[in-house]
Nucleic acid binder design. Structure first.
Lengths: 233, 233
DNA sequence: CGAGTCCTTGAAGGTGTTCAAATTACGTGG
DNA sequence: CCACGTAATTTGAACACCTTCAAGGACTCG
């Protein structure tokens, strides 16, 4: 069993709906390809077309480049998630691995091409695109309305939801991205992020160990700091 | 010919692809409905489901409510455009008319339900969702990286692209939204928006007349103020 | 163990916010 | 058609938060 077969098999089990026809699965198998990236490698695939990227192992960031210094991280991808990578539109997007990663790349056209009569692949594509839209809007709301404290607290809670691994100690998470990358995703500077870490440490909300291990000590306090919306109608 | 027929006819001509089957068109016609809204009316439809809303006349905003005071406008919709309105997820979204508007509302399920063998409706849905995703990401990048000046300059240029009407004087646009709504969409306060208007007026970039008429005097200067990315590789 | 990078901390400054008040625009009724 | 009342906008001043610039310290990799 090749590496690709294993990878595609995992994708099939975890993402593809059960009722897919063999023809659809075979076509997808033919169009998709595996990508093994080292830390900071950027995924190089045909930039004219949209792609869906399934993250099997590791972690990745989708970056939009602006001026030389400032860049914005549009999305993170963790194992089991799918990132939508736009093709050559107006802006320059890149998918970059945060740590050694195994990815399965699926050209969007292979999902959009006519597929059987129940259009299972199209349905998969639209479902993933809508998920991406929801995440992007949530992100935009965060960037438009929240303070630095709220952003980092929300970020940490989000990372705990998405990034907990079987081998991590409970309540503890390994952040695969640097402070700089956290800053670029929250629309802040690295110094502000660092200061927020320190203050939240001093408040007894979290504990850190090394550069990337974070333990949540006070879940309620952290949720409060993230500025949860009251459940009013 | 009823108002709905006219509205749906326009939608058919301007949005639906030519090769749609009559069955698809009829089903869509059966599921879609017209909505006539006065200024500040909010579109009330079943909030559990996603909807696509075609704006025929007027203008609308898609708002996310957070705490009582702060809200974020996620998208504007102008004639000819389609807004994706998410259903009952975690957040509270509302579609609200900025001025008297005619909308055509299409429940997402009526596009997602199996449709013929070429899945024309599904294709339409995915195309619109991807457009919405692109706009949302562009918006997130703006909110994460741009200054107040850049945001308002970019906003005005965007409005000129999307909102020019046949009866407007050239170089001049009617903004259907208040300063408050501009602020809520740019992630700023109303005072900051007003100050930026004043400064851009003093710089000779724009001219304003009344509350909603804006004339661009210096296109190049405004584009520069918007912080155009140099076309470097 | 050493070198380099990443992270933290400090101090000063800028940009946008908040609070408050004056002014302008617009719809309504006379 | 003009005057008035209300709401939106503009402006001012003080302040808060985040950024910038700068330097010291810690972690990780080879």
């Amino acid at each position: 069993m090749t590496a690709f077969s294993e990878l595609f098999g995992e994708f099939d089990r975890r993402v593809l709906p059960n009722h897919m026809t063999d023809a659809d699965i075979l076509r997808l198998r033919h169009e998709a390809f595996a990508l093994d990236l080292g830390a900071q490698d950027h995924a190089g695939f045909d930039n004219d077309e949209d792609h869906f990227v399934y993250v099997a192992k590791g972690a990745a960031k989708l970056v939009a480049y602006l001026s030389a210094s400032r860049e914005q991280i549009v999305a993170f991808g963790f194992p089991g998630e799918i990132i939508h990578v736009p093709g050559g539109g107006q802006r320059n997007f890149s998918l970059i691995a945060l740590e050694p990663s195994e990815l399965l790349v699926i050209p969007a056209n292979s999902l959009l091409a006519a597929s059987g009569q129940d259009c299972a692949l199209l349905r998969l594509a639209i479902e993933q695109t809508m998920l991406a839209l929801g995440r992007s809007r949530k992100n935009a709301i965060m960037l438009g309305t929240r303070s630095a404290r709220e952003r980092l607290a929300g970020f940490l809670l989000d990372m705990f939801e998405r990034g907990s691994r079987p081998d991590d100690p409970p309540e503890t998470i390994h952040l695969p991205m640097s402070r700089n990358e956290i800053a670029d995703s929250l629309g802040l500077t690295i110094e502000t992020v660092s200061r927020q870490f320190s203050e939240m440490r001093n408040l007894g909300l979290i504990e850190t160990s090394g550069r990337s291990l974070v333990t949540i000590l006070d879940w309620e306090g952290l949720a409060h700091a993230a500025g949860q919306m009251p459940v009013a109608a």
